[in-house]
Design a protein around this nucleic acid. Structure first.
Lengths: 181, 181
DNA sequence: CACACTAAAGCAAATTATTTGCATTAGAAG
DNA sequence: CTTCTAATGCAAATAATTTGCTTTAGTGTG
């Protein structure tokens, strides 16, 4: 009685969420984004469409939710021995991963939902925070997190969403070099 | 006979496009984004829904199209006498305009469509290009356009889309100062 | 200006997606 | 084991989307 408004996390709910997410991943690999429908996803997941409508509301929210869970990093940034090397390696890998067509699409999907975009932003900041803390532990002078978001992450995301300009290793090195200068 | 695959620009087509765009603007000012529907927009515009489906495809594309036309700048950047002053004034005004809730929504809409995002990017670049050309005419050493996109425009757009951080005049001054440094 | 041509719009029927009320299932708590 | 109820399933009702065909109105020609 003490737990009002409780939400159920484990069990069937979790299984269905997993099945629906998986169905979205499977289908979006084979189907153009504009052809995806909720009844199609529901069928693939072995679930009734109304379940999806009630839990997610509409297709944009579902896709945004799936996108965020896929954009969450799996591991901490690699430890390369120094802050500069960590940052260079992380930037290169981040740029490489995020600029794939699949990732571009997911980022566009995530953009539709303000909450989800903030979460993505948080993931990235957490990754950089790990690099900063590691630098502090080594006794290095840590870089400023906000400036890194502005000068490294923002230009990459801007090119992914708005521009046709290349996202390659020279560009990655230039961003890091300009930032550390 | 020489004009194959011709498209009609003026006349009725233009009137209907205008009516539909206006209907979207009117409705989106009063209606939460998630409640907008094509039949609703069609009724407001005095048009049949199938006209909208055939011309725009779906709601996301229509909203994206309207967003881009609204994000197109009306005038050239103000001439403040020097490149630095022009850039400072432009950045301040750009940030102010783009960070309104209405603009945030339009930018999210535009993000859904790769072509439209590139167009937006082009508008902004054209504005900065005007400042650069003016500087050249004055005999000033012009700044690098790509660096300006990376270090001024990108951080602003990133905060608008992904972050909850403030977009205020001190931040605008900081971006410009860091860039010109 | 009249005429032919046809892109774009209208209309309405057919299809498909979404919403909703009620019945059922299966976690969670006692 | 039993009770409680959030979450799902099901199916009917509603709403959106697609589509074939008709009509309207720019465009170009004589």
């Amino acid at each position: 009685m003490s737990t009002r408004e409780r939400v159920r996390f484990g069990g069937r709910s979790a299984r269905i969420q997993e099945a629906v997410h998986q169905a979205v991943k499977d289908l979006s690999a084979r189907t153009p984004r504009a052809d995806l429908t909720i009844p199609m996803i529901a069928a693939k997941a072995g679930v009734t469409p109304s379940t999806i409508y009630r839990r997610w509301g509409d297709l944009a929210e579902l896709l945004s939710d799936v996108a965020v869970s896929r954009l969450r990093p799996i591991a901490d940034p690699a430890d390369c021995g120094s802050q500069e090397a960590d940052l260079a390696a992380w930037t290169e890998q981040f740029m490489e991963e995020m600029s794939s067509d699949a990732c571009r699409g997911m980022i566009r999907d995530a953009c539709a939902n303000p909450n989800d975009t903030k979460q993505c932003c948080g993931f990235i900041q957490d990754q950089l925070q790990v690099i900063v803390e590691r630098a502090e532990a080594r006794g290095e002078k840590p870089f400023d997190l906000e400036r890194a978001m502005d000068q490294i992450v923002a230009p990459i995301m801007y090119r992914i969403l708005f521009s046709a300009k290349p996202l390659d290793i020279p560009y990655s090195r230039q961003l890091v070099a300009d930032f550390l200068k």
